[in-house]
């Protein structure tokens, strides 16, 4: 299960909405071993694409250095799908390299109708996808 604050949830959705029609991506870091997402870090989608995302390689290095220095890990890795449901694609699965992370997908497919944004969370371990419950709380 992913437990996340309403504030972080809303920041992720706002980022996805803002970058639409491109895919948005980022991380929520938290203290190593805690499983608690705390620090919202929106990332630039270097691919600037409606169908693909990739963290810029220099930004990626800086991010991991910073997390290392602060004894953090990527608790949540999020990105948006702009025209399909919030479910990991084959591409998502083949590049998922953080078995300890919650992979959050937001769909902005219905953004024009301003409908509800799908916000779903998955574990992706060795090519296997498991959806998990998302519990949104006011505070931890």
């Amino acid at each position: 299960m992913l437990t996340i604050t309403q504030a972080l949830h809303d920041q992720i959705v706002a980022h996805a909405r803002q970058d639409h029609p491109d895919e948005a991506c980022g991380v929520v870091a938290g203290p190593a071993g805690s499983g608690r997402p705390e620090r919202f870090i929106p990332m630039l989608n270097a691919a600037r694409s409606p169908t693909f995302y990739e963290f810029d390689s220099q930004d990626l290095l800086k991010l991991y250095r910073e997390m290392d220095d602060r004894d953090e890990e990527p608790v949540v890795i999020y990105h948006s799908h702009t025209a399909t449901e919030a479910y990991p694609s084959r591409t998502d699965i083949s590049y998922a390299n953080e078995p300890g992370a919650h992979y959050v997908l937001v769909s902005t497919a219905d953004t024009d109708g301003a409908g509800d944004f799908q916000f779903r969370s998955f574990r992706i371990v060795e090519g296997e996808v498991t959806e998990e419950e998302v519990k949104v709380v006011e505070a931890y």
Binding site: F55, S57, L60, L61, Y64, H81, N97
Partner: peptide
């Protein structure tokens, strides 16, 4: 560092 990448494509 493995890339952090994916997408619906």
């Amino acid at each position: 560092l493995p890339a952090v990448a994916g997408g619906m494509a």
